[in-house]
Design a protein around this nucleic acid. Sequence first.
DNA 1: ATATAATTTGGTTATATTACCAAACAGCCA
DNA 2: TGGCTGTTTGGTAATATAACCAAATTATAT
Lengths: 105, 105
Amino acid sequence: MDKTDLVRFEAQAQIMKALSHPTRLFIVHELAKGEKCVCELTEMVGADTSTISKHLSIMKNAGIVGHEKRGTSIYYTLKMKCVLNFFVCVNEVLKKNYEAQRAFA
Amino acid sequence: MDKTDLVRFEAQAQIMKALSHPTRLFIVHELAKGEKCVCELTEMVGADTSTISKHLSIMKNAGIVGHEKRGTSIYYTLKMKCVLNFFVCVNEVLKKNYEAQRAFA
DNA sequence: ATATAATTTGGTTATATTACCAAACAGCCA
DNA sequence: TGGCTGTTTGGTAATATAACCAAATTATAT
């Protein structure tokens, strides 16, 4: 594996990693419906505000979400819309895995 | 976030996580070109055989790759073809991130 | 200017991931 | 059978993630 490829794969992995947590996936799904502030997401998830803030920070750094300040709150939006197509792909795999497991039960 | 959703997001996250490592992304890219045995991938990556074997095991359990024994080797293949479309999506984000960063330099 | 609400940052602890080495295992073939 | 090749498993140490609490920061609005 050459150096250039490694750098690219590391960059890709960082984005994938930013999408590899249940809470972050939930947030992505919610933002797909429309913008939300940290306080709304905190309420929905039921975790500490700082925890949610850190999750958002990870996704912001990865370029997955964007944020805009309005009034006293910061509203987050989904920038990486194409990720939604991928969930279809992931769900297909989950379905196949389920069926494969079922065949042995 | 309700219980059912949590279970689904956890399952999705596990698949994403299986795709969140540079070496595993490299392997996926190689398998996209055609099947490869563990020994070939080990050679290409330049890591310990056991390391590669574990990476493959993670992706096999996630349903991303499949394997077939032939002769003395085990050949791995890419089952989750739709992941390739997602790489296009990820690369778009990387490009945007790069441009955004460049605008400040 | 200050009080207030919203968000981020720092600290700590628990858990997960990853790499390598060494050893076990499997199965093909002389 | 017995040796070889290829692969997986177990152990260990280093690093990375993630959760919560507490404290700092920001800026809105009185």
